[in-house]
C-alpha cells in the first residue's frame, strides 16, 4: 500500500517537474534569452599579487603605509573606514606618537562639555575612523545619488576582493565602440563612469586616481596610478583581515601538531588492531 502511494507521489512530482521543464524549454526555444551587456562586457578582476597572498604571506608594512597614505589623501573624502580604529594603525609599523598624530588630524564627532551641543574634536587613538558624511542622505546628496560604501571590509565583500579593488581603480576607460554597436541602449548615463570591472559596468565614482604623482609617497616610491592602486588594495586587505598574519602563523603549528598526533594515533590504531583481522 505504502509503495503504491509512494509511486503515485513520485509520479506527481515528476510530472510537475516535467511540466515545468517542458514549458521552460518551450519558452527557451521561442524566446531565447538575449545576451546582456554585463555578460558580454563585464571582466573578471586583473591578477594582483600581494605579499599577504599564499600560505606563508605576510603584510608588506611599507606598502600598507603607502596604501594608508592613499586612503588618507584620496579615498577618505568619500569613503569611511568605520571598523578600523586609529590604534589599529600600530600594526602598520607606526609608533604611538605617530598614531596619535594621525588620529589628531581627523575630526571625530564629539560633544561640547559645557553646552552639550554636538561638535567635533580631534581624534584619539581609541577612536574609529570617522564617517565623511553625517548620514546616508547626505552621502547620496553629495555623490550623485550613490552612497560611497564603507571600505573596511571591501576586499572580503567582493569576489577576489584585492584584485577587484586594484582592477576597478585602474579600469576606468571610454566605453568600447563594440559595446555601443551591440547594445546601443547601454550608453553610460551622464554622471556615471564606464568600468568593465564593476558589476553593472557603470559606476557613480569618478576615477579617483588620475595622475601619476597624485600622492607623494613618504618612502620615495614612484606613485604611478598602478602603484597607488596596488598599495591601497594591499591596505584594504589589511583593514578587512587585520589578523591575517596571526591566522597563518597560528595555522602552521596547529597543522604540524595535528599531523604528528594523527600519525601517532594511526600507529596506536595499528597496534591495537594488530591481531584482529577486519
Amino acid at each position: 500500500m505504502i509503495r503504491i502511494l509512494s509511486i503515485l507521489v513520485g509520479l506527481f512530482f515528476s510530472l510537475a517537474l516535467l511540466w515545468s521543464l517542458g514549458k521552460g524549454a518551450a519558452s527557451f526555444i521561442s524566446e531565447p534569452p538575449a545576451a546582456t551587456v554585463e555578460q558580454a562586457f563585464h571582466k573578471p578582476p586583473r591578477e594582483l599579487r600581494l605579499a599577504s597572498d599564499g600560505l606563508f604571506g605576510t603584510f608588506d608594512k611599507q606598502q600598507l603605509q603607502r596604501g594608508f597614505q592613499v586612503y588618507d589623501e584620496v579615498c577618505k573624502a568619500c569613503h569611511s573606514l568605520r571598523l578600523v580604529a586609529f590604534r589599529d594603525l600600530k600594526a602598520l609599523g607606526y609608533n604611538d606618537d605617530e598614531v596619535k598624530a594621525i588620529a589628531a588630524k581627523y575630526q571625530v564627532p564629539g560633544v561640547d562639555p559645557n553646552t552639550g551641543e554636538a561638535n567635533t574634536r580631534p581624534g584619539r587613538p581609541t577612536d574609529f575612523f570617522p564617517q565623511p558624511f553625517a548620514n546616508d542622505i547626505a552621502a547620496r546628496a553629495a555623490n550623485n545619488n550613490a552612497i560611497p560604501p564603507d571600505l573596511s571590509l571591501m576586499t572580503k565583500a567582493r569576489h577576489d576582493g584585492a584584485a577587484y579593488v586594484y582592477s576597478l581603480l585602474t579600469g576606468f576607460q571610454e566605453q568600447p565602440a563594440a559595446l555601443l554597436k551591440q547594445f546601443p541602449d547601454a550608453r553610460t548615463p551622464a554622471g556615471l563612469h564606464y568600468n568593465p570591472y564593476f558589476a553593472n559596468l557603470n559606476l557613480a565614482m569618478a576615477p579617483p586616481l588620475t595622475a601619476d604623482g597624485q600622492v607623494t609617497y613618504k618612502d620615495g616610491t614612484r606613485s604611478t596610478v598602478d602603484q597607488m592602486s596596488r598599495d591601497v588594495a594591499a591596505f584594504l586587505v589589511w583593514t578587512a583581515e587585520p589578523k591575517l598574519e596571526k591566522r597563518k602563523q597560528t595555522g602552521w603549528p596547529v597543522l604540524g601538531f595535528l599531523l604528528f598526533a594523527t600519525i601517532l594515533g594511526n600507529l596506536a590504531y595499528r597496534n591495537i588492531w594488530r591481531d584482529m583481522k577486519h
Partner: peptide, 24 residues
C-alpha cells in the same frame, strides 16, 4: 579500545582538514 582507537585517529585526520580550511 578497538573503535576508540580507530575513531580517534580519523578524528585527527578530520581535524587536520578542518584546521587547514580554518586557518588558510
Amino acid at each position: 579500545p578497538y573503535f576508540i582507537a580507530k575513531d580517534g585517529w580519523t578524528l585527527g585526520a578530520f581535524l587536520f582538514i578542518y584546521c587547514a580550511v580554518l586557518f588558510f
